[in-house]
Design a protein around this nucleic acid. Structure first.
Lengths: 246, 246
DNA sequence: TAGTGGTCTAGACCACATC
DNA sequence: ATGTGGTCTAGACCACTAT
């Protein structure tokens, strides 16, 4: 039997991922407006030649990602497109394609190997004497500064990093070269008053507002590998999150 | 056959929800630390007497809610408990129990029936001449002001509202009395500078930072019923979001 | 090699929506 | 009454981890 493979990761293509992707393409290529009804499950089974369960799994995935919504007894419908100029908060690093991780989108100040302080050590669950890479960089999008980031990667899991990698996408490197599979993440955030140290990086004044986000990323086996603190420019960075009760 | 029912909604209890809840209880009652391994799937099948698929569905739900993580070939493990004093951003209204929606936790300024302005009309997809309830209130938690909220509910879907309801939980009322089933939501957020009009409500100065969130809640059939703008106190409101790549 | 989670199937039956 | 999505089952087989 012919087995499809993902282009990048070389993992076997799962049927439900494949079907989900194709349905998504169908929606976007035909630029269906919100509320458009899709074929029913029976129809999708015939169209993609997979079992009912696989169709349902694909639909649930699309529902969680905000692409469609399903109404029992009624049908499957296209969901509202997100407002433009807002970033997907859950995909702003990591899980899916990150449009901001393009070459030249980061100004890197340093990439240092060091002993973590207490806070970093705790968040990354480091052993004693374990070392971490410390990266400080400014992030740009559309030519505008949108965030000041300080991140820490465990050397144990990310054995090498340099300035060039940090200027591009650390997450692509970590996945493709270090073979780290990203499993899940915790994000903590709040509004803050910018201090005199960070404000200049963003071209703002001390006392100006900012969105401060602390993130911890874990591998699929549950090991934390990245702890980052990002301070976002209050005018240049806006986010959205779509969620679902199911 | 005996069918279990949910206490409040009187909907039949689904097996996978039931199992998920029981596993969650097991974790919390035994206060298992993060990393604790749970029984394997075979064991859970025997313990709860349901099919493999149902166990897996329950586990996936717990995984999405940040309670556990599953490692293929290895096992099922308890995930890190969230930092205290942070609110779950996705559950801060709506989907699950809202600890802040307790009696006396809101100071209500007005509950008015009115014609929506353009922005509200668009976000709620109102027909022409449709009316909305406009509620303005301050939200408290632990005796501290944490947010200033302006919300709009479509009269078409929420036929009646008053000050007393707004002082308690609008969402409970909407679900239990109006029989609205909450399906999904869109949330947009950014840091802002407080203006002179809103700052006093939060006991802050104009120019101080704040987290501004705009939310749209939809019924399970995809109709928007609530549009809210909430301005959060930058010192009293902190949030977390847990996410998963699966 | 043995054990664990993950995918996929075919089919029965249930719950909700619409007419 | 009919059509739609949702749940649940039993079982085959695949993919990853540990030893």
């Amino acid at each position: 039997m012919l087995v499809k493979y993902r282009i990048i990761t070389e993992k076997p293509m799962l049927k439900y991922e494949d079907v989900a992707e194709k349905i998504k393409q169908m929606i976007y290529q035909q630029s269906m407006p919100k509320g458009t009804q899709l074929p029913n499950i029976e129809g999708l089974i015939n169209q993609y030649q997979v079992s009912r369960t696989t169709i349902i799994k694909a639909l649930n995935r699309l529902e969680r990602h905000g692409v469609i919504y399903q109404v029992q007894g009624s049908g499957i419908f296209v969901r509202q497109p997100k407002k433009v100029s807002y970033l997907n908060f859950l995909e702003s690093h990591g899980f899916s394609v990150d449009l901001n991780d393009l070459p030249g989108s980061s100004q890197v100040f340093n990439v240092d190997l060091m002993q973590p302080n207490v806070k970093v050590k705790e968040n990354l669950q480091c052993d004693d004497n374990e070392q971490v890479y410390y990266i400080k960089r400014l992030r740009y999008a559309d030519g505008k500064v949108y965030g000041f980031e300080q991140s820490y990667y465990r050397k144990k899991l990310v054995s090498y990093l340099n300035k060039e990698i940090a200027e591009n996408s650390i997450f692509s490197y970590v996945q493709e070269v270090c073979k780290i599979n990203i499993g899940f993440s915790d994000k903590y955030f709040k509004a803050i008053k910018l201090d005199a140290e960070i404000a200049p990086y963003l071209g703002l004044q001390a006392g100006d507002p900012a969105l401060c986000v602390e993130e911890i990323f874990y591998t699929t086996s549950g090991e934390p590998f990245d702890f980052s603190q990002i301070v976002y420019h209050y005018e240049n960075a806006k986010f959205y999150v779509q969620s679902h009760s199911k």
